[in-house]
Design a protein around this nucleic acid. Structure first.
Lengths: 231, 231
DNA sequence: CGGTAATTTAAGGTAAATTTAATGTTTTCA
DNA sequence: TGAAAACATTAAATTTACCTTAAATTACCG
């Protein structure tokens, strides 16, 4: 079970992470709403524990975004008890909350209860069919398939994930390390040659002329981006 | 919405009753577990608020009986916070609890949240189809049977559940972890070899040539999906 | 409690995917 | 302009994901 923790206070975040991992949960920890959102978009999350007061994208607004893509249980952490009754009772999308300071046993118990119910009713709604289009490229996330001009592209897993990341973030430049972290999911030493090989393979599969790529642009010294010239 | 209150302290019971009725809930009040059980057997109840410490049939034992006939949300009221974490976390059937003394707003909020979720879950169930067809495969959910070309498939429980999930979501790629979570419903470490073995067994039972499967496709590095080539 | 079915674990094999190695090309900068 | 760095390409080496089968374990029933 994958749990997302979004909490800007480092010691709280780490304490929760350790306790959850001790209870066999796989934990993704974010220090703020934006980081949490990136995790939500790229990982399968079964329950989220969100701090209300976070810089930038706060807990409430993160929940609003989250609800556009998922129906997972959400537990809020708050130092302010007032207002939470309204959030909970008015159906703004939260399932539970804990007031800081809280006992770790209580958090674990409430996580357990929410996951139990969630499982019982298959509340993890499979993400609705989502199709991403960019130029002549199309990705169908549900079936993990990719097309160019409606012709299927025979991508292997790494190539598909690279293309998905780029198509979910058109025009954004990714360093090779970022690509590595996002697709390989590791955050230690890597050899960037592996990335270049995969980019080359991906170009071979999607570009009309891979040596003069139309879509996957190299930004020398920086990284790669998905970019197609306007016509 | 019909709410059951089981609480031996008269003033608390009445206070809750009045507040809930002020919020348009229809309330059935019981002064002990036995009376609550009689109500549960004869009325349609959507959520129960149960006091733990009641003479005779206490809250925990009432919950056990309740769970033999119903899956409604249950909120406990307790003066003793210890032990509730276990009840909640270990899946003994409770959904939430409040420690006395509690604010009425909080009770109302938590009732609202539980009913909202419960209603979502129920809404999901209503839209389920009884018979699902995909290619030559048919599943009859009412009788938990599966057919290929009208010939019964001899599936055991796990195989049936796997096939059902796939047929409810044709073309969708499921990671092995997703299959595990959906069919096994566990939230700790699993060995994906178990999944592969079951997929192999399922293929042996539904595919004409299991080594060149027509329906259950492997997406190497990603997962499996139900997909039949168009004819 | 014994027998049987279902499920999980263990083990071996294989094809595909991934990584590494090697070489060539392009770009940047002093 | 030449050297160095970054990048691209291709193929070989290595690893991994997957499949199958059978043994071991667990669950269930009479």
């Amino acid at each position: 079970m994958n749990i997302l923790i979004a909490e800007d206070e480092t010691d709280i975040r780490n304490l929760i992470k350790i306790n959850l991992e001790d209870n066999q949960y796989k934990v993704f920890a974010a220090k703020d709403g934006l980081e949490a959102w990136e995790i939500l978009k790229s990982q399968e999350i079964h329950l989220a524990v969100l701090d209300v007061m976070m810089p930038g994208l706060d807990g409430f607004n993160l929940l609003r975004k989250l609800r556009t893509i998922s129906n997972i249980p959400v537990i809020f952490l708050t130092a302010r008890m007032d207002e939470m009754d309204k959030v909970l009772g008015l159906g703004l999308g939260a399932d539970d909350y804990l007031v800081k300071p809280f006992s770790m046993n209580e958090l674990l118990a409430r996580i357990g209860a929410q996951l139990r119910r969630s499982h019982e009713y298959q509340a993890q709604k499979w993400v609705d069919n989502e199709v991403i289009e960019y130029g002549a490229l199309t990705i169908d996330k549900k079936s993990c398939t990719a097309y160019k001009d409606q012709i299927p592209l025979e991508l292997n897993a790494k190539e598909y994930k690279l293309l998905l990341l780029l198509m979910e973030n058109p025009e954004r430049v990714f360093t090779k390390e970022q690509l590595y972290n996002a697709v390989w999911g590791e955050n230690y030493y890597y050899d960037d040659n592996t990335i270049m090989v995969h980019i080359s393979h991906l170009r071979n599969k999607i570009e009309t002329d891979p040596q003069n790529p139309e879509y996957i642009k190299t930004i020398r010294g920086l990284g790669y981006k998905l970019h197609k010239m306007e016509v």
